[in-house]
Write a protein that binds this DNA or RNA. Structure first.
Lengths: 128, 128
DNA sequence: CTGTATCCAGGTTGATACTG
DNA sequence: CAGTATCAACCTGGATACAG
């Protein structure tokens, strides 16, 4: 799993530490402010644009659309348009998206659970 | 684990979907471009400033220092200064930092492993 | 409803120079 | 070595208006 080709630079292929590696681009995409929340929201099932907008507090239409397009281009999201009037667009996780989201939600839930301890620690350091 | 207090807004306490929740701040910190890489780098052991700078491709001194200060304030990093000349500053993960990093590296490694498939999928969509 | 286009303010980043 | 200060450039992101 960690046995990989070593280049002259001393970095491994697929290494996120390499600023020229494509995986850095993907990493930036999925760890972007809104992408994390979009993926987390879709984890429980497909959602429409407006539902995502309502679920994710503080997101603008522009940022949501932009994030959705990026994630779709990366192959993490499927976009399905119902030819009705008005149109209904539903987003869902692809298989890759679902795998990715498992890792992300693990992170998100850990933060949610540990948040009280984190804040307490911060307050203690500020106080001392 | 998922049983939490429901507020009038319909959001759960500690919910990252709430734009006013402190956990959103922490989430933004740890998913920021450089924080992910700093934490991943420190996973294998303590490192000094210059070593981090070398390891993480493309990071500037300013951004590295800024990221380190944020993570330290959040309680994920310890900063130890050796009173020598020139000074040597070593960074290491706290217990929280180590837990957090486990989740992050899971994500990072998944991306590294899946990268070929992701790129192939992207190429296929572009071509069609 | 689900976007896209445009404009613009503000924050983030990087280069550079400087300090302990 | 390990930063901090400053400044300009870039990009992000929000508001608004408009389109399919």
């Amino acid at each position: 799993m960690s046995a990989q080709v070593v280049e002259s630079s001393g970095r491994r292929k697929g290494d996120v530490f390499d600023s020229n590696c494509p995986s850095r681009t993907v990493l930036d995409h999925v760890t972007s402010k809104w992408a994390v929340l979009v993926l987390a929201a879709l984890r429980t099932g497909p959602m429409r644009f407006s539902a995502l907008r309502r679920t994710i507090g503080g997101v603008s239409e522009k940022m949501l659309a932009q994030t959705l397009r990026t994630l779709e281009a990366d192959g993490f999201l499927d976009r399905e348009v119902a030819p009705t009037t008005p149109p209904q667009v539903t987003y869902s996780l692809t298989q890759y998206g679902a795998e990715l989201t498992e890792h992300l939600t693990g992170l998100v839930e850990w933060i949610a659970v540990r948040m009280p301890d984190i804040e307490a620690g911060r307050a203690a350091r500020t106080g001392s």
